[in-house]
Structure formats: structure tokens, C-alpha cells
């Protein structure tokens, strides 16, 4: 179920990127898309009634774990997403400095 939500979020992000011509809004759309993707990744490893995958001397074998790998992946993906967003915002700032607007359509033919 949660996977549908994730995919819908992802598609929302794509839609936002598709329809917006404002640089900031496009970056936000990218973020929405990434959030959707991250949720999707997490959902892959999720097991109903599973416990946190922490290995200790007290836990017995045979218990249901949540798959720890997607969680590790999501951490990395989030970091990368933040990096991309930061870079995007920096570029947005430089766009604003050059054209005095965030809207790609208002920049005219100046290239």
C-alpha cells in the first residue's frame, strides 16, 4: 500500500517538473520526487511485525527483521539528494543574479 503512495509521490514530482517553469519550484519538485523514491526504497525492506535489525547478544535467532540494506541505501540517497538540491539552489541563485528572475520563460532569448 505504502508503495503506491511512494509511486504517486514520485509521479507528482515528475508532474511538477513537467509543468513548472520556475527554477525554485522545479527544485522542490525534484525533492518531492526523491522523497517518493526514498519512501519506495524503505518500503521494499519493510516487513510487517519485524523488529529493528540490531544484532545483540540478547536477541534470539528466528525473529523477523526489517531488511537493513534499504535503510542504509536511503541514508545515502538522502545525502546525495541534499547535495543535488544544494547545487541546484546555488545554480538558481546564479540564474537570479544573471536574469533577475527565477522563471525560465521570462528570460527571453538572451540565452
Amino acid at each position: 500500500m505504502i508503495q503506491y503512495a511512494a509511486i504517486i509521490l514520485f509521479v507528482f514530482g515528475l508532474y511538477g517538473l513537467f509543468t513548472n517553469r520556475n527554477v525554485i519550484k522545479m527544485i522542490v519538485s525534484l525533492n518531492v520526487m526523491e522523497v517518493g523514491l526514498n519512501i519506495f526504497i524503505i518500503s521494499i525492506g519493510f516487513t510487517y511485525d519485524g523488529i529493528a535489525p540490531i544484532l545483540s547478544s540478547t536477541t534470539a535467532n528466528g525473529l523477523l527483521y526489517v531488511d537493513p540494506l534499504p535503510q542504509a541505501l536511503v541514508l545515502t540517497a538522502i545525502v546525495i539528494g541534499v547535495g543535488t538540491t544544494a547545487l541546484g539552489l546555488a545554480i538558481a541563485k546564479s540564474i537570479h543574479k544573471t536574469y533577475n528572475t527565477f522563471d525560465l520563460d521570462e528570460m527571453g532569448d538572451k540565452e
Partner: peptide, 9 residues
Amino acid sequence: SKNIGTTML
């Protein structure tokens, strides 16, 4: 096209 949406399409 310069429009990102076209490529997405």
C-alpha cells in the same frame, strides 16, 4: 528543446 518538460514527456 530548452523546455525540460519535453524530454520528460
